[in-house]
Amino acid sequence: MLVKQTIINFIQEKTHSNDIDLEMSLFASIKSFDFMMLMLDLEQKFNIALPLEEAFELSTHNICQFITWVEKHAN
């Protein structure tokens, strides 16, 4: 839940919108520079290492899949 909230809060802050569609692609929602910030935030906050190659595949899918992937690494 914490991972999901962190990601959603980040996207809300970057898009200036509270209405986030979790089915949308992550790269369609935020800029790729912000994607780097998000990855770093997540690594620091949850003390995890997120494999970049996998992240790319997921970021082109949807936000929901990205959340599940991060949660898998955080647990």
């Binding site: 790269f27 800029k31 790729s32 520079f33 994607f35 780097m36 970049l52 790319f56 970021s59």
Partner: peptide, 8 residues
């Protein structure tokens, strides 16, 4: 738009 994604 995806300049940093390309760099990554």
């Amino acid at each position: 738009n995806n300049a940093f994604a390309q760099l990554l």
